[in-house]
């Protein structure tokens, strides 16, 4: 028996909106630790890892580890029917072939339940080793989204370079080139407006903008994004999910042939 009650149901809507364009079908894994997902895009170039810790739920009952295979676009359709302030409860029996989403309005005057068919998904679960990164950039998530969107009108790839000067996002295309430099800046009114660059070594990596733009669908989840770079690893683009977890996107770089 699985029963997860999330008071901030709007968070789940935002999580689905940030996943559904990248991944079609995925297994949600429920354990005592929390509600999690790991999935790759169909080209196996990007990977997403979601964790919503059990402590973040108002009520979290998971009698035994359960894997729920869901079509993410169908799940997003169902969650779209919930109000942004609704309380969302996810329910499933141990041997269930469906999952129930229950939506309660904040003042309890409307209660809806939606039942969605589950699917068998044969997914690979990858081991992601803990890594030391050469550079970690924290910046406003809306700024990062704007940069990815702007650069993708000019080129297909972005070179992200971190030096003492700051973090530089560069692209080139048929019409010309573009470079945007963001400097370390903590003299801001609000902490979420800060850009914090921690650099052990300079690093420069090339990525497909199409994927970066897809990751920025998570922007409504968090004011800040963390971009972790190492020359021999995929980049990690992380958004916190309130105080209860995170969504991490991993993207393999492009390398010179």
């Amino acid at each position: 028996m699985l029963e997860l009650r999330l008071v901030q149901g709007g968070l789940l809507k935002k999580v689905l909106d940030s996943l559904k364009d990248l991944v079609n079908d995925a297994n949600f894994d429920c354990s005592a630790t929390g509600f999690s997902l790991q999935a790759m895009d169909s080209s196996h170039v990007a990977l997403v890892a979601l964790l919503l810790r059990s402590e973040g739920f108002e009520h979290y009952r998971c009698d035994r580890n359960l894997s729920l295979g869901m079509n993410l676009s169908n799940m997003a359709k169902m969650l779209k029917c919930a109000g942004n302030d609704d309380i969302v409860t996810i329910k499933a029996d141990d041997a269930a072939d469906s999952v129930t989403f229950m939506f309660e309005s904040p003042n309890q005057d409307k209660i809806a339940d939606f039942d969605m068919k589950l699917m068998d998904i044969d997914s690979e679960h990858l081991g992601i080793p803990e890594a030391e990164f050469q550079a970690i950039v924290r910046m406003p998530s809306a700024e990062f989204a704007r940069i990815c969107k702007d650069l993708s009108t000019i080129g297909d790839t972005v070179v992200i370079s971190v030096t003492k000067e700051g973090v530089k996002f560069s692209t080139r295309g048929d019409i010309g080139t573009a470079n945007i430099v963001c400097r370390h800046n903590t003299s801001v009114d609000k902490p979420e407006e800060a850009t914090i660059i921690e650099m052990e070594e300079t690093v420069s990596l090339t990525f497909a903008l199409r994927y970066m733009n897809s990751f920025t669908k998570a922007t409504p989840l968090a004011n800040q994004v963390t971009i972790s770079l190492s020359s021999d690893l995929p980049v990690v683009v992380e958004y916190k999910v309130a105080e209860m977890g995170h969504i991490r996107f991993y993207l393999a770089p492009k390398i010179e042939e």
């Binding site: 196996h44 170039v45 990977l47 690979e124 990858l126 081991g127 790839t157 995929p234 393999a252 042939e257």
Partner: peptide
């Protein structure tokens, strides 16, 4: 010309 690496080149299946 750039070659797109895959996630599987970096992380192994559990």
């Amino acid at each position: 010309p750039c070659l797109q690496r895959r996630i599987l080149d970096y992380f192994n299946e559990n």
